[in-house]
């Protein structure tokens, strides 16, 4: 099996990696929400009614 090879993570490393992944995910989601909300705030809801 492939997972027999490669780097083995200790439980602490696995836990830290999972926590960091969640933090990065949340930060990216926050950035998306910030730009979404800011677009609406700057252009208003009428942004969807503009001619393309």
């Amino acid at each position: 099996m492939m997972d027999e090879e490669g780097v083995k993570l200790t439980p602490e490393q696995r836990k830290a990696r999972r926590a960091r992944s969640i933090a990065i995910g949340l930060a990216l989601a926050a950035l998306v929400i910030i730009f979404y909300v800011a677009t609406i705030a700057k252009f208003g809801p009428a942004i969807l009614e503009r001619p393309l």
Binding site: G6, V7, L9, Q13, A16, R17, R20, A23
Partner: peptide, 11 residues
């Protein structure tokens, strides 16, 4: 051994 540094840094 694999030459990799695995971090335990938390958020």
């Amino acid at each position: 051994d694999a030459g990799v540094r695995l971090s335990e840094a938390m958020p």
